[in-house]
Design a protein around this nucleic acid. Sequence first.
DNA 1: CAGTATCCTAGGAGATACTG
DNA 2: CAGTATCTCCTAGGATACTG
Lengths: 122, 122
Amino acid sequence: MSTPLNAEMFDDPDCSDRAQPFRVGDKWTGMVLRCLEGGPRRFSELRVPLHWVTPKVLTETLRSMERNGFLTRTVHDENPPRVEYELTALGRSLLEPLDTACDWARTHLPEIVEARTAYEAG
Amino acid sequence: MSTPLNAEMFDDPDCSDRAQPFRVGDKWTGMVLRCLEGGPRRFSELRVPLHWVTPKVLTETLRSMERNGFLTRTVHDENPPRVEYELTALGRSLLEPLDTACDWARTHLPEIVEARTAYEAG
DNA sequence: CAGTATCCTAGGAGATACTG
DNA sequence: CAGTATCTCCTAGGATACTG
C-alpha cells in the first residue's frame, strides 16, 4: 500500500518488447496495472518505475484506462495538488489474464530465444 | 482438420481494435493462432477468414511467428506449389493464455462499452 | 498457388519546454 | 505536483501491382 515502487521493476532487458508476446491494450497499460495492484498511486509515484515514459504518454495511458473503466482518477483539493489513480473492480479483474500471460512468457521465453537463434542460423 | 475456415470468423464488429484490450505479439498473430488450432493450413486457406490482411502483411506475420518458433512452414515440392503452416508445441501452448484473454474480453466487453459511454457523457 | 516488390500513410510514441 | 503544448519521427500496416 505505502511501500514505494521499485525503480527497476521493469528494467529487466528480458522484458523488452517482442520478447513479451502479449500486450494489454497499448504499450503501457499492463505495466500501469501492475503498478496499481497494491493500491492507489499518485502520478509521480507511477513515474518512478515507469521512468522511461514521458508524462505526456503516461497521461494518455491513464486517460485511456480511465475511459475504459479500468481505473478511477481522484483529485484531492489540496495544495500542492494530489491526484490518485486506483483500479476499479474491472481493472482488477484484468490482473488475472495478465498473470496468465506473464506466466506463459516467463515459462517459454527461453524457447523463444532458442527458436530465434535457430532461425537466424538458417 | 479439413473443414474450411469460416470467412466471417473475425468480422464481428465487437472484435474491433481497442475493444479487445489484449494482443499477442503483433496485430494478427492471435488470429493466425486461432486459424491454426485445428491443424495445418495453407496460405490461401488463411486468407479466407483473414481476407482484410494483405498477402504482404500476412507473410510478415507468418515469418515472425516462424522465427519465434510458434509455427513451422513446410514447402511440399509439387506443382502447383503447396505450403503448409502448422503450430509447434510452443505455438499451441500459446492458445491457453490466449483463451484466458479472450474469455476475459468476452465477459467484460459490456462493462467496457458502458464505461466509455459514461466517460463520454461526463 | 504462394508469395515479392514498391510505394505510401496514419498515429503511437518520444523529446523538449512550459504552467496552474 | 500533475500535468499541457508542440514538434518530430518511426514503423507497423496497407494499397497496388507483379512473378516463379
